[in-house]
Amino acid sequence: MELYRGTRSVTGSDFRKWALELLTRFVRFDSAFWGMGYMIDEIVVTAFTLHNQPLEMMVNYERWKELDPLVEHLACAPGTTIDMFDVISQEEFSKTEMYKDHSKPFGIEQTLATLAMDPVTRLLNAVSIYRSDPLQYFSPDEKAFMQFITPHLIEAATLNYFHGLLLEGEHGSSIVVSSHDGMLYQVESEVAGLLQREWPEWKGPALPEPLRQKVCGEDFSSYQQCH
């Protein structure tokens, strides 16, 4: 209940950081990552929040993301919480260059990760929690809890975001927020269905071409043809 109460009391820029701090009351972790973005041929992160990690962690991760053994498994099983050691043994992972250059220096010894993606808009959220002790494994109950709570974290963050827009005077029955080039950023839950009723073949993460042209004033058909 406190999570959803926070959607109205916590400012949008602070909400994800606040929610991750709240999460520490229910499952122990030392640091965390919460990313937003979309997936076409690969996962693209457009915004993120870190808990007890420096920005340098994400900068360094760019060097290793294509070798991250978790990524492919998360992309193939949206909504499922995965432990790093479900994918690769701890002994094997500790021998990799990614572990030596990235995970160990940033205190990422244990990882539980969950990716949630809307199949129509292709917008995604990814939440990962980390422990710095190589012997403090996540339990099956903690894994089940993260699979349960992650959709609530995402829904609460979405409600918080649109509540902020309404306070700023953006009143209306449905709200879509996109980047300058027509890529979706936030979408209210009922909007995807409305867009598909108007454009039955449409799928995100770009706005439907006729709508994108009205918003951006440029031809974006090459994107849709390629994807």
Results as ranks from 00 to 15, higher is better:
1 M>S: 14
1 M>V: 09
3 L>K: 00
3 L>G: 00
4 Y>C: 15
8 R>W: 15
9 S>F: 04
12 G>E: 12
14 D>H: 12
15 F>H: 02
15 F>S: 01
19 A>Q: 01
20 L>F: 00
23 L>N: 00
27 V>L: 03
28 R>G: 11
35 G>L: 03
35 G>Q: 02
37 G>W: 01
41 D>N: 14
44 V>K: 01
44 V>S: 07
48 F>P: 00
48 F>I: 08
49 T>H: 04
49 T>W: 06
54 P>A: 11
55 L>P: 03
56 E>M: 13
60 N>T: 15
60 N>C: 13
61 Y>F: 09
61 Y>G: 03
62 E>S: 13
65 K>Y: 07
65 K>P: 08
69 P>Q: 06
69 P>F: 09
69 P>K: 05
71 V>A: 13
72 E>N: 11
77 A>C: 15
79 G>F: 14
80 T>C: 15
81 T>E: 03
82 I>M: 08
82 I>C: 08
83 D>L: 07
85 F>R: 10
86 D>P: 12
88 I>A: 04
93 F>Q: 10
94 S>N: 14
98 M>S: 05
99 Y>K: 01
101 D>M: 11
103 S>F: 02
107 G>N: 02
110 Q>S: 10
115 L>W: 00
115 L>M: 13
117 M>Y: 01
119 P>V: 02
122 R>G: 05
125 N>Y: 06
126 A>T: 11
129 I>N: 00
134 P>M: 14
139 S>I: 09
144 A>L: 14
146 M>T: 08
155 E>F: 10
159 L>E: 11
163 H>W: 12
164 G>R: 13
170 E>S: 11
176 V>R: 03
177 V>G: 08
178 S>V: 05
181 D>Y: 14
182 G>S: 04
187 V>S: 01
196 Q>Y: 05
202 W>C: 02
205 P>S: 06
208 P>K: 02
208 P>C: 05
208 P>L: 01
212 R>Q: 04
214 K>P: 02
215 V>K: 12
216 C>S: 14
220 F>P: 00
221 S>A: 09
222 S>E: 08
222 S>W: 06
225 Q>V: 14
226 C>D: 12
